[in-house]
Simulated assay, not measured.
Amino acid sequence: MATSRPHRLIGFLESRKNLTGSACGLAGVVLTLTGVAGPYWPVVVAGLYGAGALLAPPERPAPPDFPDPSAQLAEVRGDFGRLRGYLADVELPPAAEEPLAGLTGLLAGLLEPGWVAEVLAADPEGLHAVSRAVRQDVPEAVDAYLRTRWWTRLTPGQEPPERHLERQLALLREETERLAERLRDAEARRQESHTRYLEDRSEH
């Protein structure tokens, strides 16, 4: 508590209210020196200080400094590299290799440094979807398969866990394909808009 008081005092001295009030109070001192305030100069100075403090805009805390989309994309790209290393070390069924390869190929293309990644970074929903796939969906699907496969060996006759893994990877691939199509459509609309702009300009 004792250490917070000096900080509060410094914060008040540096505040907009105190600075604005002090500037107005200084104007009152000038009026006093020029003889305008007369014998009531203390009231004039205090009143101008108070008026300035009331007119000053309120203090507001600075907003949180969250990483910009480019920094977020770089983090996801690094996590994707770790995910690929994890996938290289696990044993997956042959039927899951094709949807997994298609999925990781799409993710790699979206995260490749360059203009495509810049388009993704400008799309918050798309960036969130890719981040969720890399950090949650794919690792969870693979880990759940590995765990369930071990239990299936102890209790044969259950539904093969490979089916769930294949279906999950196929769904994630379809979802990522839809994202890529949406980003492509946005670029196509941008191109069409530029064509219409040039056509309209040529008519005038």
Rank of each mutant, 00 (worst) to 15 (best):
A23Q: 06
G35Q: 08
A122V: 00
L103H: 06
H204R: 15
V119H: 08
T148F: 13
A71Q: 09
E187S: 06
Y197E: 14
G157I: 04
V30L: 13
A117Q: 04
L55V: 09
P69F: 01
R178N: 05
R84M: 13
H164I: 09
A144P: 10
G50M: 15
V116R: 08
W41S: 12
D200I: 05
P94H: 03
A95F: 02
A188W: 14
N18F: 15
A71N: 04
E97F: 05
P161G: 00
A27L: 10
V44E: 11
K17E: 08
R8E: 14
L198R: 11
V44T: 11
P67Y: 00
R60E: 14
W115A: 15
P139C: 04
T104F: 03
E159T: 14
T176N: 06
P6N: 11
W151K: 13
D200A: 14
E14I: 10
L169F: 08
P156T: 05
V43P: 00
F80E: 00
V138L: 02
G38C: 03
A186T: 08
L111F: 04
R190I: 03
L55C: 08
E75T: 12
L26R: 03
L73T: 11
P42N: 09
Q136D: 14
E59L: 07
C24N: 05
P69H: 02
L146F: 08
P124R: 01
E112P: 00
R84C: 13
G28H: 03
D68E: 10
E14M: 13
S22Y: 13
R178P: 05
R178S: 09
E192R: 12
G21D: 04
P124C: 06
L146C: 08
R16P: 01
T104Y: 06
L146Q: 12
L172M: 15
T176Q: 07
R173I: 00
Y86D: 11
E91T: 11
L33F: 10
V90M: 09
V116D: 01
E192C: 01
L55Y: 07
G157K: 04
A2K: 06
E97S: 07
N18H: 15
A27D: 00
G105T: 00
L106Q: 14
Y49P: 02
G78M: 07
G11C: 06
T195A: 15
V142G: 00
T155C: 12
T3C: 05
L172I: 13
E14V: 11
A2H: 06
T104S: 07
P6H: 07
P64E: 12
R16L: 10
L55K: 01
T20N: 10
E125R: 08
N18E: 10
E91V: 08
V30R: 04
A27F: 08
P99Y: 02
M1W: 10
E118R: 11
E125G: 12
L169R: 05
L9G: 05
K17V: 02
E166P: 01
R8Q: 14
E166M: 10
W150L: 15
R184G: 06
L120K: 01
D89A: 14
A74W: 00
T152S: 14
A129C: 01
A117K: 02
H204I: 13
R8C: 09
R184T: 15
E75N: 07
W41I: 02
L179C: 02
A180E: 07
A37R: 03
Y40D: 11
L54G: 05
E162P: 06
T104W: 05
T152W: 09
R147E: 15
E166C: 12
G47V: 02
D137I: 08
F66H: 07
V45Q: 06
E118A: 13
E75Q: 11
D143G: 07
